[in-house]
Design a protein around this nucleic acid. Structure first.
Lengths: 189, 189
DNA sequence: CTAACATTTCAATCAGAGCTGAAACATTAA
DNA sequence: TTAATGTTTCAGCTCTGATTGAAATGTTAG
């Protein structure tokens, strides 16, 4: 009787952990669009984050039910970005992987990657727009109704993005930037 | 000769404006993933933002080369969110649309919409995870290797998201929140 | 009321981002 | 060296979310 109860408690606990892990992985997948990565990449990272032990590519493949190639491609990016580390086990030829554990550091990495891929090219294009508009002679502007309008809008957006960039630059300088900024902001509410 | 030069200047100016408008619309489309909206919705909004005059649905349709229904669906959401206003012209039965012009206000709207749709459900799930873990008896935790691990990770992520939420709450309370916050942060670099 | 015009809806279709899996490639052991 | 094991690549496929377009619905003028 005692033994049976203990067994049940053990099984219940395992179930809850498995359930929590699964829910957590799903959740991480749901957040993928925030970081501009694919659902699968986020799920792989979520699995490594919530789990305490390093996983092999095969572990990941079977846990998430995805193909070998998919694991390989996504892991490569995660390692490149520094969100996941490759670790070796002695006497085992396979690679194992583990996640960073600091949430703030992870999110700093994700945000800076996203900025690099998406904000930087936009700012570049916008500066081109500004210079095209500046090169117009003031006399020739008369032909367009509401001539200063375009300049205003472009300047306003550019101002916004450059402010964001300046703040981002500080965030990404080191791991503490994001945390500091949030602590600075949190009390103002 | 004089006339010809003037004509050329006029045409050049028009071309530059058209080019700038097109590039701006593309750019806005490129930013769509930042706001979690479709490319087309962003393009419609970009067109209305960069252009000084209100546009009818048909104007938008022909400018962007998309279908009537597509314009209708996307405009509806933009109006619901308050990014675009419906305006009427006297003696014209058609609806015309114009964008908000304040960049900070627009981005506040977009960010708060995104939070509502994506962050709120995630926090809800995460709290469920936390409570599932809390309900485990400490005795039954022994069966899992590294038992506190899950709790730690969940708590850490939840702490992060709740901090973000708190800051966001302030941002979204009024149009000035975002601007204020940025001004607060900008000097720290 | 009816006709003319504008808008919205939604089933069917399309496009493309992401995934698969088999073949090529790399590494290690013996 | 060869065999065994592990990893990466990429052409083709799949599946989801976006788009179309025609029919239904709504609106205004006369």
């Amino acid at each position: 009787m005692k033994a049976a109860n203990t067994r049940n408690a053990v099984n219940d606990a395992k179930q809850v952990y498995t359930l929590v892990e699964q829910r957590f992985v799903d959740l991480w997948g749901d957040m993928s669009s925030w970081w501009g990565v694919s659902r699968t990449m986020a799920e792989i990272h979520g699995l490594l984050f919530i789990t305490s032990t390093p996983h092999s590519a095969e572990d990941i493949q079977s846990s998430l039910g995805i193909s070998r190639g998919n694991v390989s491609m996504n892991i490569r990016t995660l390692v490149e970005w520094g969100l996941v580390r490759r670790v070796r086990k002695r006497g085992d030829r396979r690679d194992y992987y583990e996640s960073l554990t600091d949430v703030w550091e992870m999110f700093t990495v994700l945000a800076s990657q996203r900025k690099r891929r998406e904000i930087d090219p936009i700012v570049k294009t916008l500066k081109q727009c500004r210079s095209d508009l500046a090169n117009l002679e003031s006399s020739s502007r008369k032909v367009v109704p509401n001539p200063g309008h375009h300049v205003e809008r472009v300047e306003e957006l550019l101002g916004f993005l450059l402010t964001i960039e300046k703040v981002a630059e500080h965030f990404f300088k080191n791991n503490e930037g994001l945390r500091e900024a949030m602590q600075l902001l949190a009390p103002i509410g």
